[in-house]
Amino acid sequence: MRRFLPLLVLVICLTGSGALAPVFAVQPDEMLEDPALESRARGLSAHIRCLVCQNQSIDDSNAELAADLRILVRERLVAGDSDQQILDYLVDRYGPFVLLEPPTTESTYLLWYGPGALLVVGGLALAVFAWRRRRPEVTQPLTAEEHARVKALLDGAADEGKET
């Protein structure tokens, strides 16, 4: 049974199963009159993970829990909560997992600073590489074998000229 579970989740999240008709993400009756608050609500929703369809935000998800959370977010906005207060409210209940943008804490330093560190380390490595490569090319006399290859090459190049 476990093998089919994810497919089931996919079906519910993206289509709604037979009995449940597909539902859009945001419903007209959920939306707030005040366009400024509504746009804050949309922005916040895009940062909150739907816990049923785990890779969607509640703004995209068709799941019922996502709808409940969208309404909750709007209620708290109307009640005058700041964006951060709303996110904290959800984290208290669902844990940091609910945030699609992970907070910068000790356990996510590597996540947030890793890419920058890689770029810097890579850049430094390249600078060292370039510094060492800066020396002019040392010319060494050709060996007899190399002489033969150069000759073969030059002949080959001449042939090539004829071909084209």
């Binding site: 816990l51 959370l69 909750l72 209940r93």
Partner: peptide
């Protein structure tokens, strides 16, 4: 009825 206590508990399924 409206699932609010569920949300307070962190119910997701």
């Amino acid at each position: 009825r409206n699932g609010r206590v569920g949300i307070d508990l962190g119910v997701y399924g």
